[in-house]
Amino acid sequence: MMLDTGFLKRIAPYIEPLTKEELAEYIAEGEESVRIREAEGVSPAEYLQLVENIGLYLGKTTGAGFDSHYQKIPLRNDKTLLVIQLPGGGNMNVFLTSEGKMILDTGYGCYFNDCERMLRSVGAGDFSDVKFVVCTHGDADHCGAAGHFPVLPVMHPVTKALLEDGSRGYASPNGREILEKFYTTTINTYSRMNVPATVRFCKTEPIGKRGLFSVIDTFAFADMRFEVWASLGGHIAGQVFLYEPDEGLLFTSDALLNFATLTKERADYSSIADSMIGSVNVNSETARIERRELMRIAKELDSELKLTGRRLLICCGHGAVSILDENGMLSPYSEPLYYAAGSS
């Protein structure tokens, strides 16, 4: 048995929420995942250390160890976009408006209280006035705290089906279903995913096009109106992108990342999923097509906005909010500020 008693004892605090039946299934899937990755050159010891490292990292970056880099971006009509780079996982985007807050991607469930303490520390109140929550896709670092907010989150119907299925590989057969399932159970459980049983669905029928992407819905909040674009499913099924033309904001979810702006610790943590599964994208070729198309569209939108004296702000799933530099590469829009729980 590769998931031996010593290993199971070390990860016991992280898998506590699993029922006896779920634990038995988790162990069986873990055993098979170890065998699959060993045949691909990852030793059992290395693989199991990756699994344990998820729990160790989340544990040390929650509570007193929580820190983040963040950008406060002024918008029209006294609104502010607060983009928080969480210590593990993707960004939480918080719109501060006179009509309350909008959250675009929630971060892990285990970071919810830390994020609320951070908001208070930086003078942004708390989450009690959140009026609208959008989850761009079903990975735990983008929807895992959705159940903590006072409103039902909005997501693509496929995202909800994926969450109910329990595998980020749902609807995307790629021959790595066991690896996808074991990783999903690991990250969802360790990060204390909390998604409500009832959610709100975005529409799915195309109403327009943005390049290769279908525009499937629009969301309105405060004086903003977001276009919802359906991804091609390269990273994960059900992923959506959002564009707000008046503010010039493009939210690319995990199809575009500014990896260069991550700290080494966050970059190392982000690499665990790739090492466990083989690729964090369920279809790598489709993901490459998405990245190229998003960059192409971004250049077009940026050129249009420049005519009005503005720039397109590319809000990546991970890393700093960016603009395109003279070489067409992602460059931080502003210098991120730093927050640490211990110094607040």
Rank of each mutant, 00 (worst) to 15 (best):
residue 123 G to S: 10
residue 128 S to G: 09
residue 129 D to P: 07
residue 132 F to N: 03
residue 133 V to C: 06
residue 135 C to A: 13
residue 137 H to C: 10
residue 138 G to K: 00
residue 139 D to M: 10
residue 146 A to Q: 07
residue 150 P to S: 08
residue 151 V to Y: 04
residue 160 K to C: 04
residue 160 K to I: 05
residue 166 G to N: 03
residue 167 S to K: 02
residue 171 A to L: 13
residue 177 E to D: 13
residue 178 I to A: 05
residue 178 I to E: 04
residue 179 L to M: 09
residue 179 L to V: 03
residue 179 L to Q: 03
residue 184 T to F: 09
residue 187 I to R: 00
residue 190 Y to I: 15
residue 192 R to K: 15
residue 192 R to V: 04
residue 194 N to P: 03
residue 194 N to E: 13
residue 197 A to S: 13
residue 197 A to W: 11
residue 199 V to G: 03
residue 199 V to L: 07
residue 202 C to F: 09
residue 205 E to D: 14
residue 205 E to C: 09
residue 206 P to G: 11
residue 207 I to C: 08
residue 210 R to D: 09
residue 216 I to D: 02
residue 218 T to S: 14
residue 220 A to K: 15
residue 221 F to C: 06
residue 226 F to K: 03
residue 228 V to W: 01
residue 232 L to T: 03
residue 233 G to R: 00
residue 233 G to D: 04
residue 236 I to Q: 04
residue 237 A to S: 12
residue 241 F to P: 00
residue 242 L to K: 05
residue 242 L to D: 01
residue 244 E to T: 10
residue 245 P to M: 08
residue 247 E to I: 11
residue 250 L to W: 06
residue 252 T to F: 00
residue 252 T to I: 00
residue 253 S to I: 02
residue 254 D to W: 00
residue 255 A to V: 04
residue 255 A to M: 12
